[in-house]
């Protein structure tokens, strides 16, 4: 059985758990706990370890989805999760510009020392005051070739679209 891995990252409350929950075939294995620091101002429970979801591609191939912990003190987990990943989805809460700096830090971490295929998902596009993907591209200073995609993490079609767009980037780099 071959397994391949994708990582879903983003700042606290960007929607990582929801994103995986929406597409995973198994109930997401999540270690959500009551938040103990300033993240509790944002949500009562947050992911302090990681989320894990799974999609069976065929009898001999499985796609694993890992959500990174949002809190800074779990940064050490990122290196472990990044090992051998196929690609990366960076989720951004489009309604909270205060998280854009943190999002840039995360992008920098994951793409600085490895040539990681990634896309940015502009989550919560269904909310009022959501910054559009074009505006997020400017705010996050992403070059034109990086895909910044509209996303609503609770909507299966939207999540599928983000994963497919990432797969198209991976496809371009893959061997014949």
């Amino acid at each position: 059985m071959q397994t391949v891995k994708m990582v879903i990252s983003g700042a606290v409350n960007a929607g990582k758990t929801e994103f995986i929950r929406t597409i995973s075939e198994i109930e997401v294995v999540s270690t959500e706990r009551r938040a103990t620091d300033d993240t509790r101002l944002i949500k009562k429970e947050t992911t302090v370890a990681m989320d894990f979801g799974r999609i069976a591609i065929s009898d001999d191939l499985v796609l694993h989805l890992f959500g990174t912990p949002g809190q800074k003190r779990f940064d050490f987990m990122w290196e472990i999760l990044a090992e051998g990943m196929l690609g990366l989805v960076i989720l951004v809460d489009s309604t909270r510009p205060e998280t854009f700096r943190e999002t840039n830090r995360i992008i920098d971490f994951f793409v600085s020392y490895r040539d990681t295929p990634y896309v940015i998902a502009a989550n919560k596009q269904d909310r009022p005051n959501a910054w559009s993907p074009d505006e997020l591209r400017l705010a996050l200073r992403q070059p034109p070739h990086i895909k910044v995609l509209p996303c609503t993490a609770t909507d299966r079609e939207s999540v599928k679209n983000v994963l497919l767009e990432l797969l198209y980037v991976i496809q371009e780099r893959s061997e014949d």
Binding site: V4, I55, L61, R114, T116, L167, Q171, R173, S174, E175
Partner: peptide, 29 residues
């Protein structure tokens, strides 16, 4: 010459056929 002295991490290069299988599966969901 990387800042932290870390060697560059090579991404695994996949076969196009494998990526296509994943794409087809996601499309069908």
């Amino acid at each position: 010459v990387l800042a932290a002295g870390m060697p560059p991490v090579e991404q695994p290069r996949l076969k196009k056929s494998l990526v296509n299988r994943i794409i087809n599966r996601i499309r069908s969901m």
